[in-house]
Design a protein around this nucleic acid. Structure first.
Lengths: 215, 215
DNA sequence: CTATAGTTTAATTGGCTAGTTTAATTAGAA
DNA sequence: TTCTAATTAAACTAGCCAATTAAACTATAG
């Protein structure tokens, strides 16, 4: 019985890590196999050897960087179980803000890109990976919204919480890519600490939610 | 003195109109010159004849569809000058919602795509075209926020108003492309009329803004 | 009508890239 | 050490696409 060579797994890993980054930076189409293999210190044939195709590597890269990011920044922001719903909301937002600011975290770039121009390859992985987040959010919002609120309002608020975070997301990512932004955006990035941003964001959202509650 | 032939301008126009749509649907990279020229009923060489390059056509297409969209849906939503700031906010949001729901309006697709994965070609045109909107929004928000609020809060709110609209934007566009969405998104698209969505959205934002005011 | 600038077309070119092939190399079993 | 399968490297293939070219065509001034 032969033992499997381990150096093959190493280059596989190197390719995966490099792919995460390159795909996040350039997108599926603009990222060339050569860019990835070169960044991984491997030959471009090794991509097809280890992953079968560029498409499959893309899918694997997403799963990999999502898993890594979620380990580092859990959805709930490690807030204790018995916290108030308000604290939990802050936890979600803060965790998300940290996640998107971390230059070694790439999953949100994939999400954003696929929203704007879908390759169609990540439809299923997204659905699967984000299910726990959706569930957590729906529970949290059910708690925040009074019992008067129906499914309609619940869904609206879920959309809003995510949308709220998209604003900073786009700007922080832009900055991370080294692109300049219009002056009023620069102001935000300069004046707010991440914690303050999360706090202001959570409060803004909470006020909106309470407004729906009071109707 | 010779008069200019007019049939050339016609195909130029046809190409421009076709390009607007094809670029919006497929993005810069995935749209092929042939797709566009075929949709315009012209030869692919005519793109380079009339526009010089694919890049330049892309820029022209953006300017064209932005101008057309803004004529149809002005930023202020045609709200009377002497309206309250709250009514003006509703006007902005409603106009934006209508704009993004109109299947013949494409400019927001460009915006969204370039946010997520910039080609770098529209940086300048965006800045130029959106300046009036920025100005209008800043004035409006200055009115809504009390005099206590500083530049920092102003910029934050500006970001939030736009971000709020991104949520529905993404979902409505998805629907328009014929892609299915997770159940809680379908609920929103089914249960809310455009006017109700705009109203709820404006109220949500307004509550957030007032929350900042009261600090 | 004729000449010409303006416009359109089909065919071609040249660059780029995903994926394949084949040969070389290496880790580990015997 | 020797053999074998796993892995890697280099060269190649096939296809795609933007851009060019050159020839054909057309509207208009003279």
């Amino acid at each position: 019985m032969k033992r499997r060579r381990t150096d093959g797994l190493e280059t596989r890993q190197d390719i995966l890590a490099a792919a995460c980054k390159v795909f996040a930076e350039k997108g599926f189409r603009d990222a060339r196999n050569q860019d990835i293999s070169k960044a991984a210190g491997a030959n471009s044939a090794s991509i097809n050897y280890h992953f079968g195709s560029k498409e499959n590597l893309y899918i694997e890269a997403w799963k990999y960087c999502f898993t890594k990011a979620t380990e580092k920044y859990p959805f709930d922001g490690d807030v204790p179980q018995d916290s108030t719903a308000e604290e939990k909301l802050y936890g979600v937002v803060l965790s998300l803000i940290h996640r998107m600011s971390d230059p070694e975290t790439y999953d949100l770039d994939y999400l954003h890109r696929e929203m704007a121009s879908p390759t169609g390859l990540l439809e299923e992985p997204f659905f699967e990976c984000l299910l726990p987040f959706e569930e957590y959010m729906l529970n949290l919002l059910t708690e925040l919204l009074g019992s008067k609120a129906g499914l309609k309002e619940l869904c609206f608020c879920r959309m809003m919480v995510v949308a709220q975070c998209m604003g900073p997301l786009m700007h922080i990512r832009r900055q991370r890519r080294g692109q300049s932004s219009p002056p009023h955006v620069e102001v935000i990035l300069k004046e707010y600490s991440l914690e303050e941003l999360a706090k202001t964001l959570a409060k803004f959202t909470l006020d909106g939610i309470n407004g729906i509650n009071e109707r």
